[in-house]
Design a binder for these strands. Structure first.
Length: 407
RNA sequence: GGGGGAAUUCCAGAGUGGCCAAAUGGGCCAGACUGUAAAUCUGGUGGCUCUGCCUUCGCAGGUUCGAAUCCUGCUUCCCCCA
């Protein structure tokens, strides 16, 4: 395997990367790797705490794939032990729930399946950090802890914030960055990928590597991908994410909801097109650009034709107000009908479109409820609706169903 | 071990005896506008057999004609000192 020139590698690596520390060492490492024909070991750690891999995760994962394509060695760390602590990064509270070892392992397997959609797992090394942490004796742990001072830990941004805010920091959380850094020592990483919030751990890893007389890793940090709200980071708990296992159409709908302002970031971090092409797209109509964005990303996880179809369907159903192609059918018992009809508010609840009668009344009172293929507005909550073969019901733009009579 | 503070409707956060289903902001929902973006405007945001009724302000009791507000006990959480 021969490597392409350092400058070319750098250009690829720098794309969509917020910070490389220390920047100047990267070229040196790449040059040395090229001279000696030795792939760099590129580390990425994930804690198997959840199961849905979303686009936010794919940012560093895509970067790994780029490294793989450049001929370097991907090293994935499954943080089955760090997961027992919970990453304190970006959290102002300690994680409420602690996972059991079994849950963590099940998640890990699931995670790898999904990660395999982005990177080439057949060429990657996969380690579980429990493989080494599980074997450590208490005295070894003490020795490890002896390398870091509390003052150093407190310089970490999120700990500092929590100190100021007078929220608790638990002792085991302090171990998190140390564990993460130790992973780098064990697997002898040359480069570690992650979000910008990982800076502290990345630097700590350098210290520990130096302490062990190992070459020091370089941190390559991606910006945090913001979620659908365009403000907060994409995350499961915030419900503002696009999962890579979602259907093409669901993904498309979500892409179209994204604020215009984040399109550039999405293009840069989630697609491979050149910066010039991005500028060209953004110069055109934002809606067109957004559709292209959606298609490009969806195409990475589904077929291009599926992506195309999803875009067309969106245009039809949302852009042109056509009836949805997939309408869930809800059966309503005939025993609830009086002369083949039923009160509107009650029907909305029975159909599952509204959680409570009060909610249904509200929807109707505000003109957000419709019925029939022509989407006639329901006027009053006690309006009697005759149920004939497959009556359509809508509440707002997003909730709808077709009613069938059943017993 | 000692001292102090706090628990309110999705979140933050007012409310210290009746005018409280509970201010305000955020979020969310619906409507208008639109490119189902943003911005803006309007309305809504405990439940119900809905001009009224019922259940809510950590839990359990109590005082009062009347309690989110007062008292007692309990639980949980935070901070400080050691």
């Amino acid at each position: 395997m021969s490597f392409i020139p350092v400058e070319e590698q750098l250009a690829i690596i720098r794309r969509g990367v917020e910070k490389i520390v220390p920047e100047n060492e990267l070229a040196t490492k790449l040059a040395k790797s090229r001279e000696t024909n030795t792939p760099l070991r590129v580390k990425y750690g994930i804690d198997p705490t959840g199961i849905d891999v979303h686009l936010g995760h794919t940012v560093p994962l895509r970067k790994i794939r780029q490294f793989q394509e450049l001929g370097h060695q991907a090293v994935i760390i499954i943080g089955n032990y760090t997961a027992l602590v919970g990453d304190p990064s970006g959290r102002d509270q300690a994680r409420a729930k602690r996972l059991t070892a079994e849950e963590v392992e099940a998640n890990a397997v699931d995670y790898l399946n999904q990660v395999g959609k982005v990177i080439d797992l057949s060429k990657a090394e996969v380690h579980r950090n429990g493989d080494w942490f599980g074997l450590m004796s208490f005295s070894e742990i003490l020795q490890l802890c002896g390398k870091v001072t509390i003052a150093q830990l407190l310089t970490r941004d999120d700990f500092a914030k929590r100190m100021t805010a007078e929220t608790p920091i638990f002792l085991h959380e302090c171990l998190y960055p140390i564990m993460q850094a130790w992973d780098s020592v064990v697997i002898k990483s040359d480069i570690e990928l992650g979000g910008t919030e990982q800076l502290y751990s990345f630097m700590l890893a350098r210290d520990l590597q130096a302490d062990q007389k190992l070459p020091q890793q370089i941190g390559v940090m991606s910006p945090i991908l913001v979620g659908l709200d365009g403000v907060r980071r994409m995350g499961k708990s915030l419900g503002n994410y696009i999962g890579i296992s979602e259907t093409p159409y669901d993904m498309m709908k979500k892409f179209m909801q994204v604020p215009d302002t984040v399109m550039r970031m999405y293009f840069e971090l989630l697609t491979d097109i050149s910066l010039t092409e991005i500028d060209a797209l953004l110069a055109g109509h934002p809606k067109v650009a957004k559709i292209s964005l959606g298609k490009m990303v969806i195409g990475q996880y589904h077929s291009l034709s599926d992506a195309e179809a999803a875009a067309n369907r969106w245009q039809m159903e949302v852009g042109e107000g056509a009836l949805p192609t997939e309408i869930p059918i809800v059966k309503v018992s005939s025993s609830k009908l009086t002369d083949g009809a039923i009160q509107a508010a009650r029907l909305l609840v029975d159909a599952g479109l509204c959680p409570t009668t009060s909610d249904a009344r509200r929807a109707i009172a505000q003109g957000g409820a419709y019925y029939g293929d022509a989407k006639t507005r329901i006027e009053t909550h006690d309006q009697a609706l005759s149920i004939v073969g497959g009556l359509l019901l809508f509440v707002g733009k997003k909730k709808f169903c077709r009613i069938e009579i059943g017993d």
